[in-house]
Amino acid sequence: MLKDFRAFIARGNVLDLAVGVIIGGAFATITKSLTDDIIMPVVGALFGGFDFSSYFIRLGAIPADYKGSVDSYAQLKAAGVPLLGYGEFLTVVINFVILAFIVFLLMRSVNKVIATVEREKAAGTAEPAAEPAEVVLLREIRDELKGRGAVPPTA
Rank of each mutant, 00 (worst) to 15 (best):
A26K: 09
A28C: 11
A28V: 13
A28E: 13
A28L: 13
T29P: 10
I30H: 04
I30W: 09
I30F: 12
T31E: 00
K32R: 07
K32Q: 01
I38G: 02
I39T: 07
I39P: 07
I39F: 02
P41A: 08
P41C: 13
V43L: 04
G44L: 02
A45F: 00
F47G: 14
F47C: 06
G48D: 05
G49K: 08
F50C: 00
F52D: 00
S53H: 09
S54Y: 01
F56R: 02
I57R: 04
I57G: 05
R58L: 10
L59A: 08
G60F: 01
G60I: 04
A61R: 12
A61S: 12
A64W: 00
D65G: 03
D65N: 12
Y66F: 15
K67G: 03
G68P: 07
S69H: 06
S69E: 05
S69P: 05
L76T: 04
L76R: 00
L76M: 12
K77F: 09
K77C: 08
A78W: 06
G80M: 05
G80E: 08
G80V: 03
P82K: 00
P82G: 00
P82E: 01
L83W: 03
G85A: 06
G85N: 05
Y86C: 04
Y86F: 15
G87W: 02
F89P: 02
F89I: 15
F89R: 08
T91C: 04
T91Q: 13
V92W: 15
V92R: 11
V93D: 06
I94Y: 06
N95P: 09
I98D: 02
F101E: 07
F101N: 12
V103I: 11
V103Y: 15
F104E: 10
F104M: 11
F104L: 14
L105V: 08
L106V: 03
R108M: 15
V110C: 05
V110L: 11
N111G: 12
I114T: 06
I114R: 14
A115T: 15
T116A: 13
T116V: 02
T116Q: 08
T116P: 01
T116M: 11
V117E: 09
